[in-house]
Amino acid sequence: MTNPTTPPPVLIAWAGRALGARPAVKDVSHPRENSRVWRLDLPRARRFYLKIPPEAVMYERETLALRSAAPALGSGGAPRLRASSAEDLALLLTAVPGQPLKHLELSPVEEAHAHRHDGALLARLHAASDLSGPRRAEAAQALQAAADGAEGHLAAAGDRLTAPEQKLARQLAEELRALPALPLAYIHGDAWHLNLMWSTVRHRAGWIDFERSRAATAVQDFVLMACSTWADRPDLRAECLQGYGRNLTIEEQHAFKCLAAIDAVSCLIRGPKLRDPHLTARGRRTLERLMAGVFA
């Protein structure tokens, strides 16, 4: 099965009614089976995006985030929700200025500026939502949930991990259960340089793709960057946390390490399944760093 190159005509018509004109449509989906995103261009360089998340829960999470938390990021800091269709799981979004940071070659000064700005935006997002009632309970159980899922990941990964790697990953996952209460937040859930937009004109950052946003521990929003961009660039970690406004506590740093182990195992499952060698390599490298005791 492959992605459709155009959205269903009924959705093009729906988007046209919401925008007041029929747009030109271009498929900009990621190269994976469950990605469905189209760019909608209107006259006078007006641009929007039509997105259909892979699952209903992702549609619900992104809709909630864009309505309740993302506005705290300010103009251009996140997409604005122009319209939504629960029946079709469709989201009509404004464009965020710039390009994904992953695709840009920046000077060291501008790169540092971008990561400092992304940390500042995450700080705003983390404080933007009311964490009371069911959301607080969800956030408080987030590390327990991560630990609960680790054994299934290890079973699925099988011999992609050596016996010592399996032992270390299992041990670190279990250590999540013994940690004290950590700072809670409303997290982006997929915060890394593919979803971080940077405008070289405005010199401002913005986050996209909120389909994994949820109430959790704040430290969970830094794991993907730690396992990718920060692996070779501790200076960028320092810039991000400076923008965030605080360093991670000792307990958060340990949770960070434990969560990285779970992410690594997940990468070794999803990488081959999605035929994504970069994802597989990320998991393999994280495990190697953990085994060598150099992950921080």
Rank of each mutant, 00 (worst) to 15 (best):
158 G>Q: 09
178 A>S: 15
190 D>E: 12
18 A>I: 04
131 L>K: 10
113 H>Q: 06
215 A>L: 09
170 R>A: 11
123 A>V: 00
145 A>K: 11
53 P>I: 08
198 W>E: 04
157 A>M: 00
294 V>E: 08
10 V>Y: 05
268 L>E: 01
226 A>D: 15
223 V>R: 01
224 L>Q: 15
108 P>H: 02
121 L>K: 01
185 A>Q: 07
74 G>H: 08
34 N>F: 12
178 A>V: 02
275 R>L: 12
228 S>T: 15
9 P>Q: 09
39 R>K: 13
206 G>S: 03
245 G>M: 09
131 L>S: 05
144 Q>S: 14
210 F>W: 09
126 H>L: 06
27 D>Y: 08
73 L>V: 14
84 S>K: 03
162 T>P: 07
64 L>K: 05
271 G>M: 10
71 P>Q: 09
41 D>E: 12
97 P>I: 00
82 R>K: 13
147 A>C: 09
188 H>K: 04
258 C>K: 04
66 L>P: 03
148 D>T: 08
13 A>L: 10
274 L>I: 13
154 L>F: 08
247 N>W: 10
164 P>R: 03
106 L>S: 05
254 H>C: 07
100 P>K: 04
5 T>I: 10
149 G>Q: 11
169 A>T: 06
60 E>W: 11
194 L>E: 15
160 R>A: 09
128 A>Y: 07
62 E>A: 11
139 A>K: 06
230 W>N: 05
242 Q>K: 14
109 V>T: 08
36 R>T: 02
26 K>I: 14
63 T>Q: 14
230 W>K: 03
204 R>P: 13
126 H>R: 00
259 L>E: 00
185 A>L: 12
199 S>V: 03
82 R>L: 15
219 V>F: 03
237 R>Y: 06
113 H>C: 06
23 P>I: 00
139 A>Q: 06
50 L>Q: 08
168 L>H: 00
107 S>W: 00
156 A>R: 06
37 V>N: 08
114 A>C: 10
77 G>D: 04
114 A>V: 02
14 W>G: 15
1 M>K: 13
30 H>Q: 13
279 L>A: 07
60 E>F: 13
86 A>M: 06
41 D>I: 02
264 A>R: 01
105 E>Q: 12
163 A>L: 11
169 A>P: 08
193 H>I: 03
176 L>F: 10
269 I>A: 07
291 M>P: 12
96 V>Y: 01
45 A>H: 04
248 L>W: 11
72 A>G: 06
194 L>N: 11
262 I>T: 15
256 F>N: 13
1 M>F: 12
283 G>H: 04
189 G>N: 05
191 A>Q: 03
195 N>W: 01
180 P>W: 13
249 T>P: 03
251 E>C: 12
211 E>M: 01
99 Q>S: 11
217 T>H: 15
4 P>G: 07
49 Y>M: 10
267 C>I: 00
4 P>Q: 01
90 A>S: 04
252 E>V: 08
228 S>Y: 04
87 E>I: 00
203 H>V: 07
277 P>L: 00
247 N>P: 06
238 A>R: 03
248 L>F: 09
251 E>D: 10
109 V>F: 12
231 A>V: 14
148 D>I: 07
225 M>V: 02
71 P>M: 07
2 T>R: 12
227 C>G: 10
265 V>F: 05
184 L>P: 11
237 R>F: 03
99 Q>D: 05
58 M>K: 14
291 M>V: 04
251 E>R: 15
232 D>Q: 12
281 A>H: 13
150 A>N: 01
292 A>Q: 04
272 P>I: 03
26 K>C: 11
